[in-house]
């Protein structure tokens, strides 16, 4: 029983991390870094609830994807066409999100800070031998596979990597660097939006103004862990997800919280993230031109 809930818990906690990381992997390969993922998760979680409550869970997921894509587009335009500072733009997005969702919850449901999503509006789960599992677990694996294939075996994937490594050479070869990079930013936004929607209308079934609780940043750590390979993002998501769900399960177990205070159990995913990023993987080289604006000579 504990085993089943641990496995399912890890899978469910993996979903937002891996989906977000997968999108960001493609974007960083193309040369756009977005540290505003936390903010995109938050805003799209909120719009997803609104969508789900007016048209069902599928509309909710779709609302999340569209919201994320639009925010990714804004970030992409700043990064690519205005050659802005990508980190600053991402930070702005995170702060903006806190304000938008805090006000949005009051504006929409009247109560401050918290709104519960009724079962009818949540993504229905599949029944498996271990218990109820969200179909989004399968979607996550499919998205990772799709992104991996796209990067490795398609013409577009080749162009994406060229734009991240050497945009000037890509440009000379006739690749439209700006468009490819913008696509990367939108792709990352859209996938992050899907992950945000999963948080609110599926997994956690609630919306608060702190719903992602750092998962956007843990997803960034997953990107580092993955060395920009979507399959390793699945593995990273599972590792981080395991400790995330262990924390969630352990903090509700009375025997355990008597021995270890719940604050230390909840701290675990963050500590593990630090150790994994620092210890197991060490240094890795990101694409040469990632995070830098491209200026045509």
């Amino acid at each position: 029983m504990l085993f089943a809930s641990l496995v399912l818990g890890a899978l469910h906690a993996m979903v937002p991390l891996t989906i977000t990381a997968t999108g960001e992997i493609l974007s960083e390969r193309a040369g756009v870094v977005n540290i505003g993922l936390e903010g995109i998760l938050l805003i799209s979680a909120w719009t997803a609830v609104i969508g789900a409550e007016s048209g069902g869970p599928l509309v909710g997921l779709l609302a999340g994807v569209v919201t994320g894509a639009v925010l990714g587009l804004v970030h992409g335009i700043i990064a690519v066409y205005f050659r802005g500072d990508q980190t600053v733009s991402g930070v702005g997005l995170n702060i903006l999100a806190m304000g938008v969702v805090a006000i949005g919850i009051v504006d929409r449901w009247g109560a401050a800070g918290f709104h519960r999503v009724e079962r009818a509006f949540r993504v229905p789960s599949l029944s498996t031998p271990l218990g109820a599992m969200s179909p989004m677990v399968i979607v996550t694996i499919l998205l990772a596979a799709l992104t991996w294939y796209l990067l490795k075996y398609t013409n577009l994937g080749l162009k994406i990597q060229a734009c991240g490594e050497n945009p000037a050479a890509a440009d000379a070869a006739g690749v439209r660097v700006e468009r490819v990079r913008l696509f990367g930013a939108i792709y990352a936004g859209a996938l992050t939006g899907l992950a945000g929607a999963y948080l609110s209308v599926d997994w956690l079934a609630t919306i608060t103004d702190g719903l992602p609780a750092g998962r956007g940043f843990i997803a960034l750590a997953t990107v580092v862990f993955s060395r920009l390979n979507p399959w390793l993002a699945v593995l990273g998501g599972l590792i981080f997800g395991f400790f995330d769900s262990l924390g969630l399960i352990a903090s509700t177990s009375q025997e355990l919280t008597r021995i270890i205070p719940y604050q230390f159990i909840q701290m675990m995913p963050y500590v593990v993230t630090l150790f994994v990023v620092a210890g197991v993987i060490g240094r890795f080289r990101s694409p040469a031109a990632s995070g830098q604006p491209y200026r045509r000579e």
Partner: peptide, 18 residues
Amino acid sequence: PLDMVRIVHGTVIIALAA
């Protein structure tokens, strides 16, 4: 709501990014 000021902060920063 008090959080309104965050929307202003965030927008200012995004505008400053570029």
